[in-house]
Design a protein around this nucleic acid. Structure first.
Lengths: 325, 325
DNA sequence: TTGAAAGCGCTACCAA
DNA sequence: TTGGTAGCGCTTTCAA
């Protein structure tokens, strides 16, 4: 910058003012500066700016290990919202343990991120609230309402009810459920299934509820167990699409047709679900949209404004993996 | 830091030395410092460190818009390599145009990233070489060999040959090909298909080569066209898994069985391919591994060492979407 | 409208 | 082994 200043015959202060439009600069110096800066291809050092301004124009995003296409849509949305505001996301993936994630967050704070997005579910709410004293945080998948932190989730319960309702309307009474491991989302989905059954006066058979682990392999295993148990069921409600894929494969292996013999529904609406064989009936999670909301909420928080966001709704998307019986 | 220094009764210089292990610090001050730092929960400001050291310990990664699970494995690998070395990735997604990407790169440079990874293919090699004068770059999907830049790709040609070979060995002679749009990868895959056919003395029917766009929708469309053209074929070679999914759906819609009536192979080995109906025979791209290699290469370049990396091989993974005829 | 100068929080050099 | 101190490249008073 000093170089620019001397070449343009002005002070560094003027250069700065020109760059940021902080104050009027005379037209003469204005054009000279434009010239010199263009010639030198000068770009202000954002590290220095950040140091001075106390803001890195960077946010941290703590995600589950990258790779499932599930949360990538959300990252996409966050990116859209933030990059429009000149922020760049530092994406770090959480790992096995909560301790590990604490460390990643400390690192992000050391980098002086202006805000934090937490997409993982290992950390207790209390700890997040604690961090929020140091940096604004918005978290996904949990209700949170601190002064400097905000958390929300999509309405899994409602969507699960809708899905179960749909199955029941089509005549299904014996519906197996492949559960996810114990997080909030998993519980809400299971509760939606259970309550809807109850509302229709159907006794849920506990033997029809089998554990999964959100993966395809878990789905395969769950269905194998179900089949071996000898229990009868006409439909499978998988707590997520991946498990539904696994379930579908387990059925295929045994030459059980979908949906003629057994119906399947998933949850998430991954991109491939539309192209599965048969296309999977599932619940669409507006992840990209949610990501955008997260970004906007964080921007508000960073600005010191209270944030209020309306949660985008999920909706049932009917395709071809369920038949009326 | 000044606070820590005064509370510990030492100079900031000593604090710095203690923090970085730059010089021996007496045991007495050592323990005092540990204490004070722990009590204050002090974390050095990496922005200031970066400004001083001329290194942000951050790298930039320019990727295609996030969301396809295809390159996420690679991001994962990059993250593994870099975070082990204390670097964090600033992931920005390229957009529609090359101009756009240039701008993103300029932004990354303004943030003083220590290195750059380029995963997109819109930018001409020449331009990348240009940027490499300012920052070390490793690019994926193109051959590059500058002083400060390195680029490599997986051997698409070889893998495509292997795949075509496999089909031919199983008796297929009329093999349709769903192409990708004109990038290097697409060309290599097509060439592998064509050359292998030729090597076996099979005349490739140009009418059997239809354009796709790397998406499922493109695959659906391609197969529809193929079918409408009235041409006969026993197998479909899709230039990527997504197109294979689309092809599979188009067949399903017409009650054409896979692999009994028509065989399909894909390319990429996405996670879901293992769970497709039927599980898809395809070529596995060691993307995560490649990402790790990219990270290591970049680390070398950042260190000013020349980088030499061996490219992980792709391999055929035989599943159930092809039958012998 | 402009320039001089005081830091932002750190590291590393020079002396002690 | 320590402390003092000069910057890293910028923004922003305060005066002119």
């Amino acid at each position: 910058m000093r170089k620019v200043a001397s070449l343009a015959g002005v002070s560094v202060a003027t250069v700065s003012r020109f760059l940021n439009g902080t104050a009027r600069v005379s037209d003469a110096k204005r054009t000279t500066l434009e010239n010199v800066i263009g010639r030198l291809n000068f770009k202000p050092n954002m590290l220095a700016q950040g140091l001075k301004m106390g803001s890195s124009r960077t946010i941290g995003v703590l995600t589950p290990p990258l790779g499932s296409d599930y949360r990538n849509d959300m990252l996409n949305g966050i990116d859209q919202a933030m990059s429009a505001a000149g922020y760049a996301p530092l994406i770090v993936s959480g790992h096995r343990h909560a301790d590990d994630e604490v460390e990643r967050i400390e690192l992000l704070i050391a980098r002086r991120v202006d805000g934090l997005v937490i997409l993982t579910d290992k950390l207790p709410d209390q700890q997040i609230l604690g961090f929020s004293a140091r940096v604004p945080i918005v978290a996904f998948g949990r209700e949170l309402n601190g002064a400097n932190a905000f958390g929300f989730g999509l309405d899994n319960y409602q969507a699960a009810c809708e899905l179960a309702e749909y199955l029941i309307c089509l005549g299904h009474r014996s519906i197996a459920f492949i559960a996810g491991p114990g997080q909030a989302d998993a519980a809400a989905r299971l509760a939606g299934y259970l309550d809807t059954l109850a509302r229709h006066g159907i006794d849920a058979d506990p033997g029809l509820i089998v554990p999964g682990d959100w993966t395809e392999a878990g789905g395969v295993l769950a269905v194998s167990r179900l089949l071996e148990s000898g229990r009868r069921f006409s439909a499978i409600f998988a707590a997520n699409d991946l498990a539904a894929y696994g379930a579908r494969l387990a059925l295929y292996r045994r030459s059980i047709r979908v949906p003629e013999d057994i119906s399947i529904v998933g949850f998430d609406d991954l991109h491939s679900s539309m192209y599965a064989t048969p296309p999977l009936t599932t619940v669409h999670q507006p992840l990209c949209e949610a990501g955008r909301r997260i970004g906007e909420a964080l921007l508000m928080l960073i600005d010191g404004k209270p944030c209020r966001i309306d949660i985008p709704p999920m909706h049932l998307v009917v395709r071809e993996s369920v038949r009326r019986i």
